[in-house]
Amino acid sequence: MQQLGMGQAVNQALREEMTRDPDVFVAGEGVGVGIHDNPMFPTAGLIDAFGPERIRDTPVSEAAIAGLAVGASEAGLKPVVEIMFNPFFTLASDMIVNHAAKLRYLSGGKSSFPLVVRMKSGAGIGAGCQHSHNLEAWAAHCPGLKVVMPGTPADAKGLLKSAIRDPNPVIFIEDMLLYFAPGPVPDEEYLIPIGPADIKRPGKDVTVVTWSKMLGVAFKAAEQLAQEGVEMEIVDLRTLVPLDKETILNSVRKTGRLVVLHEATRTGGFAGEVAAVVMEGAFDSLKAPLRRVTGPDIPVPASPPLERFYIPDEQQLIAAIKEIM
């Protein structure tokens, strides 16, 4: 099986979907030029394969990029646009929140907006808070948007292909450190449906619900805890909207314990939503109070020791689990 970073997996998904469907095009800042000329980066080489008509380098204009996707998708094209970093969501947010998410509803179901907005996220690149800020909970709070946040290259490829084929706006968030963490990706073509969570590791003692880069943190903690006789079940949400409540609830009903792990800041983070789902649907199964392990309520700092402090790690997760065992 091929070993790819998440960026390379995304690149493969884009190539396959662009080959399959001439209505798919890619637009964004630097998607066609050398700024991304690195095999680990998602749009590298696409312009050579598909040309400048379908790989559209844009000015530095996030509102126009997102509006391009809204208008073109209403006309039936399948735009995959890139907002270079998740914090720049703010510049595109009127188009995404007030238009992509709402215009189908406002049309009474007459129009649809099959667009994908890819955004790079994640702390750990030393770039500080205006390039690292996980805002998936903002997107999840807007009815009309689907929100996908893969944790492995294989998931990224299969989910992006589904996102491109989805008739709704999909926010697709890629953690940049995962570009540099190769993993197995099936050689044959496949799709992963948007919606179902994936139990990445079965276990009987405690459920950890997580997504994106924190999946790796959960695995490290699981290995350590297994040596101490604690078996963690890892539920990788993969998509926040729609949320696979049943898989979460079934896991908690089995283990009786829940920790939600995400890199985004704590207050108003999506862990609160997962916790509420469990309190409403599986309260009677809980043997102990649930816990959240998240980034602290601070902007992501640039200095390496400060940034390492920000990012949740396996020791924090293990400590939280031990509190409730």
Binding site: G67, G71, S73, E74, A75, G76, L77
Partner: peptide
């Protein structure tokens, strides 16, 4: 709100 969407419609 209209101009970016018009750009997308015209792009199509």
């Amino acid at each position: 709100g209209g101009p970016p969407i018009a750009v997308g419609r015209a792009f199509a």
